[in-house]
Design a binder for these strands. Structure first.
Lengths: 335, 335
DNA sequence: TATTAAATCTAAAACGTTTTAGATAATTTC
DNA sequence: GAAATTATCTAAAACGTTTTAGATTTAATA
């Protein structure tokens, strides 16, 4: 495999000149052409390791998804991560950066070590962290000057870099929609109680109802694990006890799909008998019948924003960057 | 940031000894302990660039999805890629390898160059290629000894490394199922005509029907672009002309979802009035009502197999590896 | 033409590892 | 106790770049 040395020798110049010619530094135009020709002829491609060693840059960004082992399937089955990934990836490609992906568990005994290493081994220039099921942020101790950004951290410390999707606002929108529609008998299927984003949705939703003097009894609330199945069983549980229910807010679109399966099987009509609202707006929301009214968590956009914030740190040396994104209602046919 | 030199100095040994101590080579156990302690104390982490430069390895594998610009949304919206990704990623992590992802288009003017560079810049040790909408395999010219594996190449050249999912068999299964159920009036919504996998399904399906003297008129066949929408319009087009149709084979689960939307809206019952079979077995298949009978393309498993074949090249220096995977029927409620 | 300024090039250092061949020290063997 | 063996260590080279400071050549000025 040809190296810069070979190219230089072939072109009859020094290594330094060859390097400069290839990197657009000032050299005589005639020699530049000669070097470029030789590089081409020898199929020269710069060695990334060599470049990285001297520049200290890898031209790579790293996306880390941290999951809870208790909910292992969340990552594999919940394709909304795919949207984040595409958002980040496309931004990375626009910056001519490589994209590196890792999935870790909070329970991994080497989790802290993972971060320690990744912040120091120069394999990436910055890190985007998607923490599911918050445990703690001990790992931040290793970051020092290493660029990073966290999605929806549960502590909004002004010093850390983060993007916050205002899920409590998302919950608020749904509550407001229910109120406007005049629903009084309402059910809700929450996310897992240790899932921060789900907690925000829950609070936004419940509080707005409270303000309008609507209280949902505990027996009309169910804590799901975000899966279709738990949406199904949750809905059954609620409806058996509360046949009067007119509308159900589901913490995500999978749960909504499960809810709709149960409701349809029971011979009830959506939205006439029971209205359903989901959350996230993943592809499933468009696929099911009737098409699901849901809250668009703007997943791909969030991925892009995360990446851009990271690049502001990497390229412009900014710090303490925060960004807030409001989810929005997507009206379809289920309410 | 501490380097090996620092660790060595601190421990009072040479750089060589420090390196050997850290890499489990034979050194006196007492000095090893000393070196490890110092490394720890200084927060030492080996620099990847330096390592890669000398070893020629990056401990990284690269997954490249090649799409057609004409069908740009396929990648972003069709989350079955997510399953491939998870399959590859988890295998990579088990080998302690990093995972890089790229999405390219056949139309990218720099596509060839991309491969030329990636095969030579030492940023990865091998490449998995998922070509959608086959154009050609010119890029293989750059691979020489660079480890790679292709999913479903349209040319099954014994010299190249590939995994072949027998989609024609998948098509065959569905045809057989329809025949066993006694359906005579059958509709089919194909994938795009320039999509190789879709072509295989089509042929397997059509041929098996032919063998049983069933011919589907052109007006009961529709070429979709794999989206929900085209499933919807395709189904409408077919059913308006052929109200007698009893079953429809959809080229993927999105299309099946669209088909089901139209059918349900028309007041028809699935599967009583019309049976539907999808393809892929992505999450949507479980989410829609009734749950979709479909062909499991074993996406995550395929990702794992691809990665393992790549590692056989990287680690064991094997070559010309082929693997064949049979899709299988998943019976649910739509037939 | 001599002097100065600008353009062009290069030698050498540096980045942080791993590995090899050999030096030194410790241990075993007879 | 000397010779042979083994264990332990190190100096130096190598990997392939980029960058810096200065050397050389060329062009511009007076």
């Amino acid at each position: 495999m040809a190296t810069l040395k070979d190219v230089a020798k072939f072109a009859g110049v020094s290594i330094a000149t060859a390097s400069q010619a290839l990197n657009g530094k000032s050299v005589n135009e005639k020699t530049r052409q000669r070097v470029l020709e030789c590089a081409d002829m020898l199929h020269y491609v710069p060695n990334k390791g060599g470049q990285s060693l001297i520049t200290g840059k890898s031209n790579t960004i790293l996306l880390v998804i941290i999951n809870s082992a208790k909910h292992a399937n969340l990552i594999r089955e919940n394709t909304f991560f795919y949207s984040y990934i595409m958002g980040v990836l496309s931004e990375a490609q626009q910056h001519n950066y490589n994209f590196h992906l890792e999935v870790k568990n909070w329970e991994d005994p080497d989790l802290l070590d993972f971060f320690r290493v990744k912040c120091r081994d120069k394999s990436s220039d910055g890190m985007i962290i998607l923490p599911q099921y918050i445990k703690n942020y001990d790992f931040l101790q290793y970051f020092e000057d290493f660029p990073y950004v966290i999605l929806n951290p549960c502590l909004e410390d002004p010093k850390i870099n983060y993007v916050s999707v205002e899920h409590s606002y998302g919950g608020y929108i749904v509550a407001d929609l229910f109120i406007k529609k005049g629903y009084k008998n309402i059910g809700v299927i929450h996310g897992p109680d240790d899932h921060y984003d789900a907690e925000c949705r829950r609070n936004g939703f419940i509080n707005q109802l409270l303000k309008n003097n609507i209280i949902i009894p505990q027996s009309a609330q169910y804590y799901s694990d975000f899966t279709i199945k738990s949406g199904y069983t949750g809905t059954r549980k609620i409806l058996l006890k509360h046949p009067e229910i007119e509308a159900i807010f589901c913490c995500n679109d999978f749960v909504a799909a499960g809810a709709m399966q149960y409701i349809t099987e029971s011979g009830l009509k959506i939205p006439d008998d029971i209205a359903i609202v989901g959350y996230d707006n993943i592809d499933i929301a468009k696929a099911i019948t009737p098409a699901l009214t849901t809250i668009d968590a703007r997943l791909e956009e969030v991925g892009g924003v995360l990446a851009r914030i990271l690049f502001r740190q990497i390229l412009d040396n900014e710090s303490s960057i925060h960004s807030f994104i409001r989810p929005e209602l997507i009206k379809r046919k289920s309410i």
